[in-house]
Amino acid sequence: MTFRNADVLLDVLRYQLGLTGAKPGCLNGDCGACTVNIDGAAQKSCLMLAVEAIGKEILTIEGLNAPIQGVFVDQFAFQCGYCTSGFIMNAHSLIETKKNPSDEEITAWLESNICRCTGYMEIEKAVKSVIHLPKGP
């Protein structure tokens, strides 16, 4: 595929690869709706050029199959769903990176995303329920 040097990763994912799960919300790194995982780390794809992602492993919500998705459903951790992809990718990255994170660590990760519909308590319940799931060997 070809893209311009100036293209941000978000636009290439959405408009060239058709992966519209990552959402534009501000194109300024303020809202987190475009969060994807790059080599296992959460990354706002509006703040990264597509050329910077060459050779890296990009995981978007479309490729995710993790318990966090199910608990978001069970806990009603979304309403309109627009911020959900980004929130899930960020939370997934937290769960994969930190063992038993403290409340402060959870907040430090999740405060980079905005949800305008819920009061965040549902998201907190969902994320904590996965953190406290028995981990595999």
Binding site: R14, Y15, G18, L19, T20, G21, A22, K23, P24, T60, I61, E62, L64, Q69, G70, F72, V73, F78, G81, Y82, T84, S85, I88
Partner: peptide, 13 residues
């Protein structure tokens, strides 16, 4: 909505 398949207006390509 939890799998990125939900389509909004700007997602229509």
């Amino acid at each position: 909505k939890v799998t990125g398949r939900a389509k909004y207006t700007a997602d229509e390509l």
